[in-house]
Design a protein around this nucleic acid. Sequence first.
DNA 1: TATAGAATTCTGCTATGCGGAAAGACCTTC
DNA 2: GAAGGTCTTTCCGCATAGCAGAATTCTATA
Lengths: 251, 251
Amino acid sequence: MLSSVDNVLRLVQLLRDTGGLRNKDAADALKIAPSTANRLLSMLVYRGFAVQDESHLYFPGPALAEPAIEDTGTRRLVLIVQPHLEEAVRRYGESANLIIRVGTSARFLSTVESPHPLRVGDRQGAVVEARKASGGKALLAELPRKTLERMYLGELAPHDQRMSDAEFDAFIAELAAVRRRGCAFNREAIETGVSAIGVAVHNPSGRGVAALSLSAPSSRFERIVTGGAEQFMRTIAEHVEDDLAGSLSSE
Amino acid sequence: MLSSVDNVLRLVQLLRDTGGLRNKDAADALKIAPSTANRLLSMLVYRGFAVQDESHLYFPGPALAEPAIEDTGTRRLVLIVQPHLEEAVRRYGESANLIIRVGTSARFLSTVESPHPLRVGDRQGAVVEARKASGGKALLAELPRKTLERMYLGELAPHDQRMSDAEFDAFIAELAAVRRRGCAFNREAIETGVSAIGVAVHNPSGRGVAALSLSAPSSRFERIVTGGAEQFMRTIAEHVEDDLAGSLSSE
DNA sequence: TATAGAATTCTGCTATGCGGAAAGACCTTC
DNA sequence: GAAGGTCTTTCCGCATAGCAGAATTCTATA
């Protein structure tokens, strides 16, 4: 048995079932040393399964709130998209990502990292708020207003995603601009110093199934925008759509 | 960085985001050897994060469908209940568990294992269907009928938990018997060869907050029932309730 | 029936991950 | 304000856990 692996899985269960705990609680519950618990909890924080507050308590992180999805061909999508992400990195020298939306979350399925020493790192597996991510906005922009209302307004909306009427109207206006422009931006909405441009990818029946994004340190970001990244990302998305259609018809 | 721990966390994310995969897919995606992927996936199966079907495909397991809960004092509850579980094991020689209900799931918070070589093992962290678990039934029995309808009947019910009208009526009748009797049974409903008796534990305002169960190999189970386990478990639950009330008033 | 690919098991080896010690932070009590 | 206790986090030496490759087994396809 892989004891370190087993310990971290039990720690995930403990976090899930207690809702929050201290390092010492974890060590006691799993009968491991506090230094071991500290290392394992740090890994959970690193991968988004836990967050630590300023009084050293650990709470369930965004990765613990995300349900599994049905198999919707994401493995195949990753393979199809990979060369296109590589092309985007070659062209602009910045990190490129494949993203899907699940509810109000955006999930990174894969990253091709920029070769620059200062770069946005591999986000594979990471989960962020769709409303803040460039790829998330690109996908949300294609949803009917009623769907967006259910997601972000009133009692049916997830509590932490709920917007005021004013916030919601501003968001709708922003998404209208995304539709006009054919791409969305995130300027440090998720992480200080990181900006991104994202476009939606559609299946043959026209539904947004994923998004591609190019992310860069903000210091280099405007340069890629003025360097034609908007049109380039739209073109890449079209190529991906062609490949998707082609791969479906060869089954 | 703990590479084996990091790999398994990334594997959890991969399983969540793909909805199902083969061993080789996992190895390729994480850039690890197939033998490594196999060992890690086996750990995920063991702890309920994955299930493997008969064609060797891995799918998200019950542990991946369970949301984190708010901190409701489960750590304190575990400490308060521990000596009572030990008393039950001393008295009957079988494994004793502390369980909470979350939605339609029952979660094992802690286990004190029987000293017998043949015994029901430590289930801490495990998740089962509440409707099948003795502790789960004890807690469900205390819910209003309308709540049970939302959980198990019609479109609002989780798809995998949905019952027909006939099944639901039979379940309601079973829960009425649980209320009359003050305890619930699971006779091999979850795992072949394992039976259990469970009772609810209430907070001072009378709400069921947890359950205690005694689980045994079915071959020894009737002996503990005829040995007064029903009344014993009810008594233990009362003692736990007294301790809970006492610990609240000392804060 | 043969072949190829994948899954799983086995095993030697080395790099990982353990726990203890130490340092630092914080809270409580006097 | 000082002392003491507890907890968190970091560091480090060491033992073994967990790696990948090889071998074996299984399954699907031609």
